[in-house]
Write a protein that binds this DNA or RNA. Structure first.
Lengths: 225, 225
DNA sequence: ACCTGAACACCGTTCAAGT
DNA sequence: ACCTGAACACCGTTCAAGT
């Protein structure tokens, strides 16, 4: 029972609008997504878009939901019934989120703007279910879950910021070298720690670093008995 | 040796502009800060502001820096030479950041937009110095520090989002009751965990929750030997 | 039911002109 | 050196008018 308008391949639809929005966001970042640019890409008027989505906030929310849903499907499928424990499942889900935001930095900023979206809820549940399977006492579930999702979504926002700050052409390691260089030049009397870890900042990998944080939280959860 | 223009109490200055911006941000949120509103409050033209600050991004950065500097001064002074260990110092600094963002929610969103500001650097150093004092092996310093600051600034962004989502009049517990009510009505087959923790979500305190996450990370750091 | 595109009410930012 | 405020080039959103 397809709707009449579905016959025209180029008919406007919420789905096509969201896909076009994602393409614009991926190509030019959040600043590039305007209703005029979107209308031009879809060869229609800007007002037409408003027939399918309420406003720009809803459009960004739908685009985020789309990306997260896809990322979660990939992560969860890699964690199926293959006997991987809940600890490993949490790591895989977290990395799935990290990679999704790495590929679509604008998604990261969106979480600290409109949480409680459907896809976010599924990530919450996926983490929560594994926390429960971790074997910690029931009274510790909520805190353990909260620490993990706060870290995962919080890091997402910061990675998005890093990506946005970076000059389009340059790669991450050049940007890190710049920042580390700045740290190395700080006054040693005021900033002994940052000076000391500057070389590690320059050499570190964001993804490994993110995972190390997950592991520290998991280790902390493991101490709760 | 005061500058000539300092004689007029109402002379425009970067400092007065930043203070007015903070007042507008606190009163009406990020959406309320426009150059027109700021110019009106300072009884000047919008172009005058551009003589003192480069653009809106710089203005928001300066406002954030101002708030964080003040918060850090308060937190650090409460942690002086009174024998409190590094563990407790980390908790106090983290809570200082939490409270600052609780009072100025717009600050939270700013971190995931322009990190590496002077005040942020001081928070980084303050946490890092205490990590070093924690007694973990030197090879673990960088990961431990990174997990803590990612969590602290990440939670900041999410708290800011929560504050922004909330209807101006209502209080946090009413908003939490709403969300928890939604969780309690989810399909138990798909969302067993969220259904189960819904009552805890309704009853929890954001600040305690935040601190519990810090403690879990600290516990995880404690396992590294 | 869905699309068009001009119009409206805003923005941030610039800049000639003032003092 | 600093301030003014009109002007410019944008936005998101609306809505009468079309099909």
């Amino acid at each position: 029972m397809t709707k009449r308008t579905d016959r025209r391949a180029d008919a406007l639809s919420r789905e096509r609008i969201v896909e076009a929005a994602i393409a614009i966001l991926d190509a030019g970042g959040e600043g590039a997504l305007t209703f005029r640019a979107l209308a031009a890409r879809l060869a229609t008027g800007s007002g037409a878009i408003y027939w399918h989505v309420a406003d720009k906030e809803a459009l960004l929310a739908a685009a985020t939901d789309h990306v997260v849903t896809r990322a979660m499907a990939g992560a969860i499928s890699g964690v199926g019934a293959d006997g991987a424990g809940p600890r490993q499942a949490i790591r895989v889900i977290a990395l799935g989120m990290f990679d999704a935001i790495d590929a679509h930095p604008w998604v990261g900023a969106q979480f600290s703007r409109a949480p409680w979206q459907p896809a976010t809820l599924r990530v919450f549940e996926a983490i929560g279910g594994r926390v429960r399977a971790l074997g910690v006492p029931e009274g510790a579930w909520f805190n353990a879950w909260s620490a993990l999702v706060t870290y995962i979504f919080g890091a997402a926002g910061q990675n998005a910021a890093n990506a946005r700050l970076q000059a389009p052409g340059t790669d991450r390691s050049a940007a890190l070298a710049d920042i580390a260089g700045g740290w190395a030049r700080l006054d040693p009397a005021d900033y002994p720690f940052l000076r000391q870890v500057a070389p590690q900042l320059a050499a570190h990998d964001d993804r490994d670093q993110f995972l190390a944080g997950i592991d520290l939280i998991l280790a902390g959860i493991g101490t709760v008995r």
